[in-house]
Computed example of a mutant assay.
Amino acid sequence: MTALVRRAQDARALRDDVSGMDVILMMCAPHYVTTYVPEAAPDLWRRYLGIILDGLRPEGARPLSAG
Rank of each mutant, 00 (worst) to 15 (best):
M1D: 10
M1K: 05
M1H: 11
M1E: 04
T2N: 11
T2W: 09
A3F: 09
A3K: 12
L4R: 10
L4H: 06
R6Y: 10
R6C: 08
R7T: 12
R7I: 03
R7A: 15
R7L: 14
A8D: 00
A8T: 01
A8R: 01
A8F: 01
A8G: 02
Q9K: 02
D10W: 11
A11Y: 13
A11K: 09
R12V: 02
A13L: 15
L14G: 00
L14T: 00
R15H: 13
R15L: 11
R15Y: 09
D16E: 14
D16I: 12
D16H: 10
D16Q: 15
D16C: 07
D16N: 14
D16L: 05
D16K: 14
D17Q: 04
V18G: 00
V18Y: 01
V18Q: 00
G20F: 08
G20T: 04
G20Q: 03
M21E: 15
M21Q: 15
M21Y: 13
D22Y: 04
D22K: 05
V23T: 05
V23Y: 02
V23I: 14
L25R: 08
L25S: 05
L25D: 07
L25M: 12
M26Q: 07
M26N: 10
M26K: 03
M27Q: 01
M27D: 07
C28A: 15
C28S: 13
C28V: 14
C28R: 11
A29N: 04
A29P: 00
A29G: 13
P30K: 01
P30M: 00
P30A: 05
H31Q: 06
H31I: 08
Y32Q: 13
Y32A: 14
V33M: 06
V33A: 03
T34G: 03
T34K: 01
T35C: 07
T35P: 00
T35I: 01
Y36C: 13
P38C: 10
P38K: 07
E39M: 10
E39P: 01
E39I: 06
E39H: 11
A40D: 03
A41C: 05
A41L: 12
P42T: 04
P42R: 05
P42L: 04
D43T: 08
D43C: 06
D43S: 08
D43A: 08
L44Q: 03
L44K: 02
W45Y: 11
R46I: 05
R46N: 00
R47K: 14
R47T: 05
R47W: 08
Y48G: 07
Y48K: 07
Y48V: 10
G50N: 14
G50M: 05
I51M: 15
I51R: 14
I51G: 07
I52K: 00
I52H: 02
G55R: 03
G55K: 06
G55Y: 06
L56Y: 14
L56M: 15
R57N: 04
R57E: 08
R57W: 01
P58G: 02
P58E: 04
P58W: 01
P58K: 03
E59F: 09
E59V: 14
E59D: 14
E59S: 15
G60C: 11
G60I: 01
A61V: 09
A61K: 02
A61P: 01
R62L: 12
R62G: 09
R62Q: 13
P63H: 08
P63W: 07
L64G: 14
A66M: 10
A66D: 09
G67A: 15
G67S: 15
